[in-house]
Design a protein around this nucleic acid. Sequence first.
DNA 1: CAGGATCCGGACGGATACTG
DNA 2: CAGTATCCGTCCGGATCCTG
Lengths: 133, 133
Amino acid sequence: MMVKSKLKLVEVDYASEGEANCKALGQIFERIGDKWTIMIVGALSRGPMRFNALQRSIPGLSHKMLTTTLRGLERDGLVTRTAFATIPPRVDYELTEQGSSLHEPLLTLASWARSQQSYIEGARKRFDERAEE
Amino acid sequence: MMVKSKLKLVEVDYASEGEANCKALGQIFERIGDKWTIMIVGALSRGPMRFNALQRSIPGLSHKMLTTTLRGLERDGLVTRTAFATIPPRVDYELTEQGSSLHEPLLTLASWARSQQSYIEGARKRFDERAEE
DNA sequence: CAGGATCCGGACGGATACTG
DNA sequence: CAGTATCCGTCCGGATCCTG
């Protein structure tokens, strides 16, 4: 069953909210913004995965960072952890409903990154060349 | 004139691309993911702003982080810097077309954060309580 | 006002070694 | 296999001081 996640684009002015609210949203952005969070949610969007499979699927992701990020996602209720008492042990990670609802916004962002990639790379190159006087 | 930015949700599988491409996208995510980037783009989405106005509009943003982030955005071609040779000097920062095209994806994300805020806070609380055995 | 330069503590994250 | 624990270098980012 698909998760209904058609987000209304309400007037969320994420920069100029009340201070308290701004801080709260900031805490959430800190998780979302995390490079590995994005990758992991992307990987899990296709279904449950085991720890090592997850790590192998994301180049550059270290053992430590994977566990840390997974704990964070679990804490936020975006990912569930299921351990099987087999030998060798097996642990599956899976997106919760809320976790998978995050996938669509991230896809939007990824799509943007894709479409702007060459522009940004060009801008960076020009900027750097200009900087070497 | 509104920037046309209806992004097609193509099959961007941001987790399992080629290694090279993954690295490249990662570099872009690093900028987007940055807490302050999000805030600054949000603030600038309403129009050009001066340095100090920008800083005051975002609670907790230090002098140094503002300049650093602005340089980054300028380097990526997402923000323009315009200096007026007046006394005292005045510098306006403004989103480029590409920069403002980032605003909509970010709004989507902010909207998601908003809608999941209480859920996440609850999940965190429960997780933390459960952790104190 | 806008910012560069410098110092410095603390957090982040990699490598390694050890458990169940 | 799936972690936890520890060590330790690096870099981030705040505070401060100084320029045009």
